[in-house]
């Protein structure tokens, strides 16, 4: 069984890289996630809606951020987490996920780590940015 994570302020999670995100990835994720929004899987539809091409589902990239967390942290220790989708992740992008402990706080008698998390694409541009609250031993 995975040991409970017990970091100090400033500690980082091992980075996770996923992709490049192909059109096939987008189609598989649409089916696997029950997300039938055509902007991600039909380039004709995306262009008619004013987009340059299909682009990644935000939830695909958030799933990669989930891998970042669960690679090191027991899932049941994730109290809450949230992200803002700050930029579109284009098709063919490679995504790098990172996280750093910003603070350690008390919450309802429990010690928790506050993590800043982010997903970046090729040139370092942030596409998802957010935070996670992790229960500590």
């Amino acid at each position: 069984m995975m040991e409970r994570w017990n970091p100090a302020i400033g500690d980082t999670l091992p980075e996770v890289e996923r992709g490049p995100i192909s059109r096939g990835t987008l189609a598989l994720f649409a089916g696997a996630s029950n997300d039938h929004v055509l902007l991600h899987i039909d380039s004709d539809y995306a262009k008619a809606a004013g987009m340059p091409d299909v682009f990644a589902q935000g939830m695909l990239v958030m799933a990669y951020l989930g891998h970042l967390l669960t690679s090191t942290i027991r899932q049941e220790d994730i109290v809450s987490w949230k992200v803002r989708f700050v930029a579109i992740t284009p098709v063919h992008a490679t995504v790098r996920c990172s996280g750093v402990v910003r603070d350690i706080v008390g919450r309802g008698g429990e010690r928790c780590a506050v993590l800043d998390i982010a997903a970046r694409i090729g040139d370092g541009r942030i596409v998802l940015s957010g935070e996670a609250l992790i229960a500590l031993p």
Partner: peptide, 30 residues
């Protein structure tokens, strides 16, 4: 999403045109 009447609840209530839809923020409380 497996129950679209839930995932799209707000979108249906405001009669959103999904061609112009983007996901802005997402959070989970476990």
């Amino acid at each position: 999403n497996a129950a679209p009447e839930q995932a799209a609840y707000g979108l249906v209530q405001v009669r959103a045109d999904v061609r112009y839809l983007l996901h802005a923020e997402q959070g989970f409380n476990h």
